[in-house]
Design a protein around this nucleic acid. Structure first.
Lengths: 147, 147
DNA sequence: ATAACATGTGGGAAAAAGTGGGAAAAGATA
DNA sequence: TATCTTTTCCCACTTTTTCCCACATGTTAT
């Protein structure tokens, strides 16, 4: 099973489509991906098998009668959509997801091993502006496991 | 068996009708859904089979001699109505349910695997405004299951 | 260098989906 | 019964989505 890696910049067109970079596309088995809201201001893309694993972990042995379950389901499960990769290798991003991630024109697509992320280029810049320090601190903590 | 997913925004018209998004409609077998009051300020929509499962669990496993059981039953079971999907793919929402969910014009329709939810757009915004923090906390805990 | 291919981008045309509203049918009120 | 309101059924318009094809750019191979 291939892993997704790489950082790419592609443009969202007027019809809400963006090319899935060929390097990432070639790791997707089949012609659909599942797209949903990420935890930060980005979208998550999963190949079907990975999504099944993930959503199963999220939904099994939880009850709709717990408020926290409903939060997670509404925020992660509900926005998920099956997206077909078209003949030109693009994915059409539904309006609600475009709005969530604040996508305008320039997009950053990230390969993160078992899934991918789509960011608005400007939002991604802001994300790093706000979190660069935290990253440095986190890296210090990780020190123990790095070689 | 297909699962419902996706977040959609449709408008309630003057006659109290709202389109069931095609992506969701295509997963409904038959031409009716069961609609009832949800646990938050929203409506729940079930395909007939799922409703049978759900309402059976709700009524079988608990006793009518417990006050809490009667609360749940009056709140979930009693308001349930069979709703026909019309030729244009819309559902007419009864006035009492419209009032319960505070539906005005803009509606959010969610697919949550085995059932669907209908929210007033503004109410849904308020819901997230109140619960975003709780979600972030829940997400931190979920961190361990993310691959 | 040129041809052949791969990749990303744009746009036209057809189909599908969402929305509004008229008219018939059913029901309520006096 | 006659009138008025509400509901249901159907049609039509508008917007959105989908499916194709075409082009530009960059890379690889001959």
């Amino acid at each position: 099973m291939g892993l997704f890696t790489g950082e790419f910049r592609n443009t969202l067109d007027d019809k809400g489509r963006v090319s899935l970079p060929a390097r990432l596309r070639s790791e997707v088995t089949g012609s659909t991906v599942i797209m949903t809201q990420g935890i930060d201001k980005c979208l998550w893309l999963f190949p079907p098998e990975a999504w099944n694993d993930f959503s199963k972990k999220l939904t099994e042995s939880v009850s709709v009668f717990h408020a926290r379950t409903r939060l997670v389901q509404r925020r992660i499960i509900a926005p998920a959509q099956d997206i077909e990769i078209d003949k030109a290798g693009r994915i059409g991003i539904p309006q609600s997801l475009r709005e969530f991630a604040g996508l305008t024109k320039e997009c950053i697509i990230l390969g993160i091993n078992r899934y991918m992320e789509v960011w608005d280029a400007e939002q991604y810049r802001l994300y790093w502006q706000e979190n660069e320090e935290d990253f440095q601190a986190a890296a210090e903590e990780l020190g123990t496991i790095l070689f």
